[in-house]
Each structure stands twice: as C-alpha cells, then as structure tokens.
C-alpha cells in the first residue's frame, strides 16, 4: 500500500482556480438560459434552419470522412512508402491549422477564382462557395483528420495473423478487410466517427470563410449562434446549450476510448 500524502496547499489552490476558470463560463451560460422560452427559441426559424443544416452537414462530413479517410488510414498504417510521414503530417495538419486559414486556403483553391474552382465553374457550372456542399467541404477539411489518426492507430494494433488466418481460409483481401479487419477496429471506427462528427458540428472558421453565412444554406449552428448574439441573445444561448449538450454526450460516451486508441 502506498501512503497517500496530502497535496501542498498552494497546488490545491491553483488547481481549484483552474477548475473555476473552466467551469465559470459554463455556469454563466446555464445561468442565462431562459428555461421558459427555451423550446420556443430552439424552434424559431433561424434555430431550426441552423440545427437541420448542421445535422445534415456534419453527418455528410462523417460519411465522406469514412469513405475517404479509412482507405488513407489503411495505406498509412500498412504500407511503407517514401513520403509517408509527409502524407501523415498533411493529413493531420488541419487539426492544428487555424480553421480560418483552412477556409482561406479552400477559398483560394475552390472559390470562383480558385485554381480548381474556376474550371469547375466554367466547365460544369459548379460553385462550391456559398453552397451547402461548400459547408460540408469546409467541415470535412477540418474534421476528417480525427478519423484518419484514430483509425490508423487502430489498424496498426491489429495482429496481422488474424488477417492471415482469414486468407488461409480462402478470404480474398477485400473479404479479409470487411470481415476481419473492420470488425476488429470497430470501436475505433465509432470513436473516430464521433470525434469527427463533434468537430464538424462545432466548425466555424473554415465554414464562414469558405462557404459564407447564408441562413438555411451555409449558416450552421456555430454561425447562427454568433449572428444571434448580436440581435437575439436568447436564441444564441439556446443553441449554445444544444451544442454543449451534444459535446457532453460525446465526451461521456467515449470516455478514455479515443486516447486509449491513440496510445496503444
């Protein structure tokens, strides 16, 4: 048995201050909620448009991230190729890049005058800026790295002998991946998707920069909160509360899962 010594008073004081710093804003938010008008605020046209749009965009982001992120994670985890660390850095860069920079970069690449955006518009008449597709793109750019690194870490821990066992039983590569690899990494797949979804839901900087702020088309929850703060504070508070609730649910349901997946 180790002896539990009392921590020094000064450290306790600092720790308490830190907790207060983190907790007070949340308390402030909760204190200002007008519970009687909450339902009305959440169902106001601005709010429902933002809620619906955020749901659609964030879920599309998860789907696209799964479709494109998992293959990339697999390549990164299984193949040693020149420039792999560069690719990995590129895939995780949006996690540390200020989202507004991501938005500017997207704008310069896919905007009406961007290097890809111009031919896209000229030839196909497709415009990504100020469109819901653009909002999804911005969210995907920022959120997909969470899926990639979570899934790559999980793929690295899969014992290849299980996949080999499946191969000797007659399963081709796709079947091995689908029936052995994917089920094995399912927990990380879920955790990565949840993190990606949460990040997409909260995306602000890249979305507003690249896709703009059009109600019903690109004005997602965080944008609506920001705008509402100017005119209709109660709606802003109600939407913030909704986002806070979603974050808490994700945090509680994942617990140490994600960190565990990355560490192992």
């Amino acid at each position: 048995m180790s002896i539990q010594r009392r921590p020094p008073l000064a450290v306790v004081a600092i720790a308490t201050a830190t907790v207060a710093f983190l907790a007070v804003p949340l308390v402030g938010l909760l204190a200002k909620v007008s519970w009687s008008s909450l339902w009305g605020d959440l169902t106001s046209p601005v709010a429902t448009a933002a809620l619906g749009l955020s749901l659609v965009c964030s879920l599309w982001t998860v789907v696209i991230s799964l479709a494109f992120g998992v293959p990339l994670a697999w390549v990164l985890a299984r193949f040693d190729f020149p420039g792999r660390s560069l690719v990995r850095a590129l895939a995780t860069l949006p996690m540390v890049l200020p989202p507004v920079v991501g938005g500017v970069a997207l704008l310069l690449a896919f905007g009406r005058n961007g290097i890809l955006g111009r031919p896209l518009f000229d030839v196909f008449g497709v415009q990504l800026t100020f469109s819901t597709a653009g909002a999804v793109m911005a969210e995907t750019f920022v959120a997909m790295p969470f899926l990639i690194i979570t899934v790559e870490a999980a793929l690295r821990t899969v014992d290849p002998r299980f996949e080999e066992a499946a191969a000797t039983l007659g399963a081709g590569r796709w079947k091995v991946f689908r029936r052995v690899t994917l089920p094995t990494i399912a927990p990380s797949l879920v955790a990565g998707s949840a993190l990606t979804w949460a990040r997409a839901l909260g995306e602000f900087g890249a979305t507003v920069t690249f896709a703009g702020n059009i109600q019903g088309r690109t004005q997602t929850l965080p944008l609506a909160v920001y705008v509402a703060l100017e005119g209709n504070e109660q709606v802003a508070i109600a939407l913030s509360l909704a986002l806070l609730a979603v974050s808490l649910v994700i945090l509680v349901s994942l617990r140490g899962w994600w960190l565990g997946a990355i560490r192992s």
Binding site: E164, A167, G170, P183, T184, A186
Partner: peptide
C-alpha cells in the same frame, strides 16, 4: 496466394476471430 491454396492452418494461439 494463400486464399487460393487448399491449405488448412492452425495458428499458434489459434487466432480465432474474437468478434465471431
């Protein structure tokens, strides 16, 4: 390729699929 050989293998530690 292994999936096309008619070769049954009992692996060390058996490598049974844990999710099945």
């Amino acid at each position: 390729a292994p999936e096309h050989r008619q070769c049954g293998v009992v692996f060390q530690d058996y490598c049974l699929f844990a999710h099945l």
